[in-house]
Design a protein around this nucleic acid. Structure first.
Lengths: 104, 104
DNA sequence: CTTTCATTTCAACGATTCTTGAAATATAAA
DNA sequence: TTTATATTTCAAGAATCGTTGAAATGAAAG
């Protein structure tokens, strides 16, 4: 992962609504949640939730699958884990002090 | 750490120049580097480097200390580790799949 | 006390992001 | 085939971000 790519991913995490989305999608597990359910849970209008879900989808942090009328979103752990690994191992060269600070 | 605070921290990481700064400051170790050295290493004008260093300093990701004419910047592992811990443990509830994906 | 060096601050500008509400699309039900 | 449901897309506007180069600040040297 390039610095540019990581920066884009961090940009996707740089919004409280989207962190809320990630939180509830992780909680929801592999079955995920519909866009509407996400909107309700984070207290956002459909359009606003859709905007944030799209942002997360475009960078690969969430997956999307149509289920009849609903679009079901779920967390992509691989992508999120890859970003953490970039920060920890590549950007910060596996620095021991850093790992100690995050319990890794 | 609140979602709002984490979002601000992720925002500070959402720029390739700033990830470059973090990389070289981690590499430089506890002694850090002057603003001028940072600027040279990332290939930026003094003013642009200063802007990015300030952004990182304001959110506590780097520390700053004057040494005669130079301002010496160094990485704050505690803050960076705290953010990773937020994502891993709080936001993602210690999810095992995620931890596996980043080697934690 | 003037000059030099290191860095920040500022103003201006363009680019990007976020929100809102209305209109469009896709799917299913009546 | 009309209607209802679920979601996205769009346009407009406000807010924030990033770059540039010039001016200001802080600290040391001559």
């Amino acid at each position: 992962m390039t610095e540019e790519e990581a920066a884009v991913l961090f940009g996707a995490l740089s919004n409280a609504d989207r962190l809320g989305v990630i939180r509830i999608l992780v909680e929801a597990g592999p079955d995920g949640l519909s866009a509407g359910q996400v909107a309700k849970k984070i207290g956002a209008t459909p359009s606003r939730a859709s905007f944030h879900l799209s942002t997360l989808y475009e960078v690969g942090i969430v997956a999307k699958e149509r289920h009849s009328r609903s679009l079901i979103y779920s967390a992509n752990f691989g992508r999120l884990g890859g970003l953490i690994a970039f920060l920890l191992d590549d950007c910060c060269k596996g620095n021991a002090a850093l790992k100690a600070c995050c319990g890794c």
